[in-house]
Amino acid sequence: MIPVRLAYAALSLLVVSILVFVATQALPGDAAVAKLGKNATPEALESFRNLYHLNESMPAQYIHWLGNILQGELGNSLATGGSVSTLISQHVVNSLVLLLFTGIISIPIAIAIGIFTAIRRGRASDHVTSITLLVVTALPEFVLGVALIVLLATSIFHLFPAVSPLDPSRSVFSQLELTVLPTLTLVLLVLPYIARTVRACMVEALDSEYVSMARLKGMPERRVVLRHALPNIAGPTFQVIAQSLAFLAGGIVVVEAVFQYPGIGEAFVSAVQSRDLPVIQALALLLAAFYVIVNLFADVGTVAMTPTLRKGAR
């Protein structure tokens, strides 16, 4: 099971890298002419092509390109001329900060909401929470983000800045007020998924025979929920948390663009707008790798946490 899953993850990454490579190759134009200008001598163009392996076949070029990427050489940005890796490293840190805050805030709240609504199943508080979560899940990322700006950053409540362009000369930790709204948006994106899954699993667990047994023994309800039901939903809960975080690889792109927060998502959108190919390639690969690896982690972790799946594992 796990080796098969690993092989699929590796295959997925390989296909993604081929896709990114082929997609960027499909663009018209000669890279050598574009780089050296129309007046370059034929000799200069020839040596440039040799230097970057442009004369070789497409598969050979792909191998060279992949080899460079694996060694961390991502090339230079067409827009600024700077090295792509230095250019994106600060953005990666900024995005990770958002992800970290989102995880720390959303996971405990979502689990608490899930358990609470499962215990109060069928009551008014459960219905209200369910409908609210359903409404929030329906909204696109940018609608949530802009709605929060309207509510919390304009005339209604002027609590936070409407955009979050970090000052690059200072650490993100010294400008935390700028991370509040992007983090809040991301929390609202993942929280409903986790809470709904936890509720569904908890409802199932509370209907089970071992829970009835524990109750019949006279065990306090609190202990039944926390010691008997909760450990049994650890597997699916872990899986939905990891999947939600993986899903943020897509969500963060829009949310950072909404708030002009300088993370990898915002960098990706502006690179796409200016067609800065090396940056597009690097960021698309990075986000896809994050997505594949976190999903892999989700599956492997779920198997490890669920004894019945573990036994059946090949």
Binding site: V20, G250, V254
Partner: peptide, 13 residues
């Protein structure tokens, strides 16, 4: 294994 928004942006760009 590829987030759909990224795929869409890549091709549209």
């Amino acid at each position: 294994s590829f987030p759909s928004l990224l795929l869409a942006l890549l091709f549209l760009s």
